[in-house]
Design a protein around this nucleic acid. Structure first.
Lengths: 193, 193
DNA sequence: AGCTCCGATGTCAGTCGCTGTCATCAGCTA
DNA sequence: TAGCTGATGACAGCGACTGACATCGGAGCT
């Protein structure tokens, strides 16, 4: 039990998300977030490096999930298969949270600064993925390419998952996108519109 | 002849790059940049939306180059081939500017905000590439994947081009990376370390 | 030439994100 | 009970960025 109201971080995240939805990211001041959480602006910045970071608290956990999935893939798995395993592990975790993911994504999509922050989180994910592949003995360039390709697939599958009415699971969409990426890079002509 | 000293934008870009190199991005204030360019802080913000944007003035031209290269690719070219053509066109333009590209990249790599801005420029490039592919009749998902894959290849080839002592051209490195991406996504085991 | 228009710049005040510093407060331990 | 410590508050200050208004000087018109 804390000495003050417990879970200050959680209250800040909740308040920030609410306000970003209600009035938009730019129209929300950090002082307002802190006030709604029953804290002061200064305390907000002790918990989060900046006004954007409060929306990305889960990024660290996701990255650990990715890395351990790659590390845990069978030694016989090809790099792209290890990456696929990581993406599927993430899909399982995210599958239950589609509504909240969609709310969050709506906020992010509406603001360029937040999109920038999301992109650097994905880049960090890619770098961690590449490192994990190198740990498995994958050559430098191949590791970087497999990681970037995996993140590209994740981005596109995730976007479709949130857009769709929701028949297919995230894992399915990831698998399909991975297959389609293989076809596309092979120069195979895909279905036209 | 302009009424004031001409080429205010160019002077601002020059001054900013110099100062970012001399004392670092964070340690440079906009007022200092403006002063070195013989202007005021307010005028800086009339030319550039923020302190980061002054480093990315060329992004628009690069994007147009990408788009017109895709649009100009033969109708028989597969999506990934059209993307490859765009990357090669960019490589030709960049090939002559390795030193200045390296200086710029050193500044960007040293600061997270600048890396974020670079990533969103690349994302914008990817979106434009995908749109250009859709114009050619490529299906939505395939267009998005081909574009993201192309940008991934560009990122990695560009990085290697700047790192290497410089034997291979950027165009060569892009071609090799494109080939390696095809192998990696096909699950083909690549050389290990 | 004289006049007017207009776009680029300067000036100034103000908001807000973010930081450094010091005080305070609540529980824990000796 | 007397510290000790970690989380918080209070406050001053810097710098990025914006809105409003003044100014300046060339372009075009009469």
């Amino acid at each position: 039990m804390g000495r003050w109201e417990p879970n200050a971080r959680g209250r800040l995240e909740q308040a920030a998300l609410e306000l970003y939805i209600e009035r938009g990211y730019e129209q929300t001041t950090v002082a307002e977030i802190a006030k709604r959480a029953g804290l002061t602006e200064r305390t907000f910045f002790r918990h989060y490096a900046d006004k954007r970071e409060v929306l990305f608290a889960g990024a660290g956990a996701l990255q650990e999930l990715f890395v351990s999935a790659v590390a845990g893939a069978p030694g016989s798995a090809a790099p792209i298969e290890a990456v696929g395993a990581a993406l599927e592990a993430a899909a399982v975790v995210l599958q239950e949270r589609r509504d909240s993911a969609r709310r969050r994504q709506t906020v992010i999509a509406a603001n360029a600064e937040l999109r920038e922050r999301e992109l650097i989180k994905l880049a960090s994910l890619s770098a961690a993925l590449a490192d994990a592949l190198r740990q498995r003995g994958v050559a430098d360039t191949a590791a970087g390419l497999a990681a970037e390709a995996g993140i590209a697939v994740f981005k596109i599958a995730f976007e479709r998952w949130l857009d769709e009415t929701g028949r297919r699971s995230l894992a399915q969409l990831i698998q399909e996108s991975l297959d389609e990426l293989r076809d596309v890079t092979a120069g195979r002509p895909s279905a036209e519109r």
